[in-house]
Amino acid sequence: MAPRNTASVSSRKTGSKGIEDFAPGAIVEFDRDDELKAYREMLLIRRFEEKAGQLYGMGFIGGFCHLYIGQEAVVVGMQLALKEGDQVITGYRDHGHMLACGMSARGVMAELTGRRGGLSKGKGGSMHMFSKEKHFYGGHGIVGAQVSLGTGLAFANRYRGNDNVSLAYFGDGAANQGQVYESFNMAALWKLPVIYIIENNRYAMGTSVARASAGVDFSKRGSAIGIPGFQVDGMDVRAVKAAGEAAVAHCREGKGPIILEMQTYRYRGHSMSDPAKYRSKDEVQKMRSEHDPIEQVKARLLEKGWASEDELKAIDKDVRDIVADSADFAQADPEPDVSELYTDILL
């Protein structure tokens, strides 16, 4: 069950200039700083999500809570390919995206617990947060709706004449929604600078890709209207960054939208209430032991002598401290006042 495109080795140091030069399966070599940054960012997401899972189990988080564990390389790799002002929008499995965009762990965790110090003042919850400063546009709960919104972000960038790109993330499940294709068509027609990132984690809730999709190569979902696409090993942060750089260059040059199918895997169930009985424990274990995105980086750091076990432990401790602080804050912070019931609806 390895991803269909296991990362092939490329000697190219930098990302491609655009998709013409992009070889499917390519990676960018990371230097020590890149590896350490990726390690730390991915670890922060994982530890954060583990803690969120615990808080959910303890009853501090109600409603929905969709964990990103296993998929960390996708969003961390893509962020490494962006520049200031590029926008990110995604669906409901969004905690990792927000942390990778630089939004505060305290703000995200306190939103999960519905507290006034949460990024949406306790009104949004797990699926609905936003940051103008970090160019993160949510956090949306209706499957596929963010694809049209992300197309609108790209439309605005084009109208304003800047060279920013927008990243619209969605899953293999959302890829079967109708408005996704309406958006593809409009973006292709108007050559909008939008990267459609399909996070194919193989299951739409409990339904496997094979049971829901007549064609399982999601990178080809725009081929009839001329949108190029690539399948990417979404478990290898270097492969994600390489594809991301090629896609960003393509969009910035005004060549229109592009699709990146990130082949990834979520270790946990769809949400906290999902025991994931639709797949075998062996399948999950195999992905964890052979393709874990964080272990891959860790192994390279140790192998190349770029970090010692102790240094990596120190990073882990630092990350755990940030997460513990966010969890403490999210439990101690008060609920919003009842006077907030009628605020923030209409000005």
Binding site: V147, G150, G152, L153, F155, A156, Q179, M186
Partner: peptide
């Protein structure tokens, strides 16, 4: 636009989120 009402409104909403 093409005849795509959900994406027309969705695109408008997304653009409006940026201040257009």
């Amino acid at each position: 636009t093409p005849i795509s009402e959900p994406a027309i409104i969705g695109t408008a909403v997304g653009a409006a989120m940026t201040g257009l």
